[in-house]
Design a protein around this nucleic acid. Structure first.
Length: 860
RNA sequence: GCCCCGGUGGCGGAAUGGCAGACGCAGCGGACUUAAAAUCCGCUGACCGAAAGGUCGUGUGGGUUCGAUCCCCACCCGGGGCACCA
């Protein structure tokens, strides 16, 4: 089995062992193994781009692989799966440019990625490989959508989206950088288009709560809390003079209600027209029109400039004091948050203050807080204090007043406590070809009424509709029995240019006879089948965004081939959620919010048995270029893993990636650094294997090892074990280097000692470990050789060097018995010549003795 | 503006209250070699000093402590995120 080489030649050793692992199914995880605890480790799966694997992938997956191999050595039943996040725009773009079908582009890219991953020596269980574009995977992604649809969590809305004329598609917010498309830097504009939206806001509270119990980086939890943006306050209704309607606002400061001197509604607010008086009509309409052409970004940019607004001509009544206050229309109020209307309290809100000053609206102080000199704080004063000018509530604290005022309003039925979230619903459709088709068929109202059977069973309580050319279109679900709904075959993947994807051109697929009971379908070009349940339908032309597949892939790894269910509950119970999930921090508020949303929903409907999808999350840092900058082709500082493996071997690259620094930190690549690692591996090889390729005579069963060497060996076992537990791989590698330095000095070494060391090395550099393991006479594979134990007794020395500190400063040191008592230590310290020169003529006032470390004499 | 993370030799980093700089890289000196590469051995924070040795030193300034890179307060700098969210 072993490679036929006398020198350390990774290019000969590594492919051999990779083949061995593959041939022996070494890394196929066993379901329901009750003899060992399970360990499910997952790294964020890659998007198989045409550029091949990035060295950042190498880092991420090396950390995962090493943890898996370590856990396996520690007796766990380990599962390390891998898959492909293969839908998406770059593949579609390649298809458009080259005319090669995206399926084929994906197949080629996946083949490259797989080859590259295998060349790293990763112990991936390929029997669990998943691909989000595989129809058998798409089937269950669509199944989940059908469930969301059924439970009222998917709806259609016409909303402004980023439209890129050059790309002929809408783009997601995250695909816009500085007002241009991320790909190609094309201009983008706002367009109102019919979109699918998922009601993630229904899960806002659950998504927030779950953050309490999970082991995630604090920074990511903070980002998510910020993104969800919970704020507690009240909803208050204001009567409108001369109108039957009332205007409801959300406020976090009901305690300032007496100070509300005007109101503002967003330009998109539904009451704008009714509020506008005849004499203001022209002015208001012009303002609303101007606001509608502004994007959110323009509005945000304007935040730095002056506020704008226009008086509607209407007045509202402040419910707490009956004051008549004007209603303004201004775009500093956003329709998407709260109720799209506010009560403005200029004395106690910076924005309202700025607006009131500009438009000369009264400013009334209702909160007071005196400073030490008894002076009132200047306006706007935006924190809590004591109420003034507030009728019967004057004198209350802000906290008391909030309760009292809301309670008052509540008895009149015009106020209540309310909670608001910044989180918006999730825009879930894209106008692209290469994505999951929605399992939705649009039909007329009359045909919608014919829904029965399985189709009806998957309808939400309230129908989902939209209006097209004056006709109301009704959404019917393609039920689970008819899934997957496959993409139509075409050779033109370009968006159709009218806001629809390429699917809009695939007429045979698009226009169908749809069975409103079973969900079966036939092209409309064929004769209408017999039976009243057959209706004319048009399929949804949007596809799902790339995030869809990754919302549940952690579940599919557990049960990748199940064609009866998303996941078998028994397997779900056995493997649970990933014990470890690693990926970049860039997904903090995207994938890492979307996936828990889907997972919590699936748990709520009983489709999965485990509540929390990702109990433990780790972010790896970025591998930067040698110049310390982010790697990019334009900077010319890209490190290609293939080239590194060819030059230095996978083992050296793996070790170096782990040695560079803490996993979570960004750190620059250094070509000289990997040479140092290669030197380490070559020294190890040469120490064990002599020039003829045999085990060096230095090694024997019962060699007489020095105490110092025994100490380093035991320390190394302890340190590497602890560091693997803590994820501090850089210091584990350091310790192995320390061991190597000791090994080189030692004249005779026991075989058992070097074998123990190889077990430690194996998770980091598996190929050389296997090779040496076998050459030392063991049977493959070292993967199942277990983990060494250390002996505390061999690590402690009878005598240690004790630091002598005078007034906290290190001045000398003395050799002393490890467990010497304080009196002995003090006597030795006082007798020390160097120490004496600092003590001379002074009294020792205090002694602090830390056995084995320091003795500190306080003199003076 | 708000939130989060960080700041240690020439470089990557180590040390989470006990002798700062482990380990590696780079650099310097030496051995081997006709020579170079490779390999091996030694030195390598700054300053003063011939040396012994001393002084300073973990972004800055305070504080707690016998003792602080580590804990607390204030500030400076860098990175990331959010930002008219009522």
């Amino acid at each position: 089995m072993a490679a036929n080489c006398t020198d350390y030649e990774p290019s000969r050793i590594e492919p051999l062992w990779q083949k061995y692992w593959a041939d022996n199914n070494t890394f196929v995880a066993k379901d329901f193994d009750s003899t060992r605890p399970k360990y499910f480790a997952m790294a964020m799966y890659p998007y198989p781009s045409g550029h091949g694997l990035h060295v950042g992938h190498s880092e991420n997956y090396t950390a995962t692989d090493l943890l898996c191999r370590y856990k396996r050595a520690r007796g766990f039943n380990v599962m390390q799966p891998m898959g492909w996040d293969a839908f998406g725009l770059p593949t579609e773009q390649t298809a458009v440019e080259t005319g090669v079908h995206p399926r084929e582009v994906t197949r080629r890219n996946v083949a490259t990625f797989k080859r590259q991953l295998d060349a790293h020596g990763f112990g991936i269980d390929w029997t669990r490989e998943i691909n989000t574009t595989d129809p058998q995977y798409v089937r269950w992604t669509q199944w989940i959508f059908a469930q969301l649809f059924k439970h009222g969590l998917a709806y259609v809305d016409e909303r402004p989206v980023w439209w890129c004329p050059a790309l002929g598609t809408v783009l997601a917010n995250e695909e816009i950088v500085d007002g241009k498309s991320e790909r190609g830097s094309h201009p983008v504009e706002r367009r109102a288009l019919r979109q699918w939206v998922l009601r993630i806001t229904a899960y806002a509270e659950k998504l927030l709560e779950r953050l309490e119990g999970i082991d995630w980086p604090e920074s990511t939890k903070a980002k998510q809390r910020n993104w969800i943006g919970k704020s507690e306050g009240a909803e208050i209704s204001f009567a409108i003079e001369g109108l039957d309607e009332s205007l409801t606002v959300f406020t976090t400061r009901p305690d300032t209600l007496y100070g509300a001197t005007y109101m503002v509604v967003a330009p998109e607010h539904p009451l704008v027209a009714k509020l506008t008086s005849a004499d203001k009509k022209a002015e208001v309409e012009a303002y609303v029109k101007a606001a509608s052409t502004k994007s959110d970004m323009d509005r945000t940019d304007l935040a730095k400039g002056e506020k704008t607004g226009v008086f509607s001509g209407s007045y509202a009544v402040n419910p707490i004091n009956g004051a008549r206050i004007p209603i303004w229309i201004a775009d500093y109020v956003l329709m998407g948050y709260g109720t799209g209307a506010i009560m403005a309290v200029p004395a106690h809100d910076e924005r309202d203050y700025e607006f009131a000053v500009k438009f000369e609206i009264p400013i009334i102080r209702v909160i007071e807080k005196l400073d030490a000199e008894g002076h009132e704080a200047p306006l706007p004063f935006c924190v809590y204090g004591k109420l003034v000018n507030s009728g019967k509530h004057t004198g209350l604290s802000s906290a008391e007043a909030k309760k009292a005022i809301v309670a008052d309003l509540e008895t009149q039925g015009i106020g209540r406590l309310a909670i608001n979230y910044k989180l918006r619903d999730w825009l879930f459709s894209r106008q692209r070809y290469w994505g999951e088709p929605f399992p939705i068929v649009w039909v007329s109202e009359a045909d919608f009424a014919k829904a029965s059977g399985e189709v009806k069973a998957f309808l939400p309580e309230a129908p989902i509709t939209f209006v097209q050319d004056g006709q109301v279109q009704y959404a019917l679900p393609v039920p689970p029995s008819q899934l997957p709904l496959k993409l139509p075959e075409t050779d033109n993947f370009q968006p159709s240019g009218n806001g629809e994807s390429a699917l809009g051109r695939c007429t045979e697929w698009l226009n169908i006879w749809f069975n409103a009971s079973t969900g079966e379908a036939l092209p409309a070009s064929e004769p209408r089948p017999e039976g009243a349940e057959w209706v004319r339908g048009r399929r949804e032309t949007n596809t799902m965004p790339q995030w869809a597949g990754s919302c549940w892939y952690h579940l599919r790894y557990v049960d990748p081939n199940n064609d009866k269910a998303l996941i078998d509950p028994k397997l779900n119970d056995y493997w649970g959620s990933p014990d470890y999930y690693i990926g970049g921090p860039e997904h903090s508020v995207l994938h890492l919010l979307y996936a828990p949303f889907w997972h919590l929903f699936l748990h709520d409907i009983g489709a999965v048995t485990v509540r929390e999808p990702y109990p433990r999350l780790v972010h790896q840092g970025m591998v930067l270029g040698e110049n310390g900058e982010k790697m990019s082709k334009s900077r010319g500082n890209v490190i290609n893993p293939d080239a590194v493996i060819k030059e230095s071997g996978a083992d050296a690259m793996r070790l170096y990636l782990m040695f560079m620094g803490p996993l979570e930190d960004d750190k620059p690549w250094n070509t000289k650094g990997i040479e140092g690692i290669t030197r380490f591996l070559r020294r190890l090889w040469r120490d064990i294997i002599d020039a003829e390729g045999r085990v060096s005579a230095k090694y024997s069963t019962d060699a007489n090892e020095s105490k110092a060497f025994r100490k380093v060996l035991n320390e190394t076992i302890k340190k590497v074990s602890d560091d693997c537990e803590r994820g501090r791989y850089n210091t584990a590698v350091s310790q192995m280097m320390i061991f190597m330095n000791a090994l080189a000095k030692e004249e005779a070494v026991r075989l058992a000692s070097i074998k123990d060391f190889l077990k430690l090395l194996a998770p980091f550099a598996p190929h050389i470990a296997e090779e040496l393991w076998e050459r030392l006479g063991e049977k493959p594979s070292i993967v199942d050789a277990g983990w060494p134990t250390y002996n505390e007794a061999e690590m402690v020395e009878d005598e240690v060097m004790l630091g002598i500190l005078i007034n906290g400063k290190p001045r000398s040191e003395v050799r002393i018995a490890r467990d010497a008592d304080e009196a002995t230590a003090l006597a030795l310290a006082k007798a020390d010549e160097k120490a004496q020169s600092f003590i001379e003529g002074k009294a020792v006032r205090k002694v602090v003795y830390v056995p084995g470390k320091i003795i500190n004499l306080v003199v003076g």
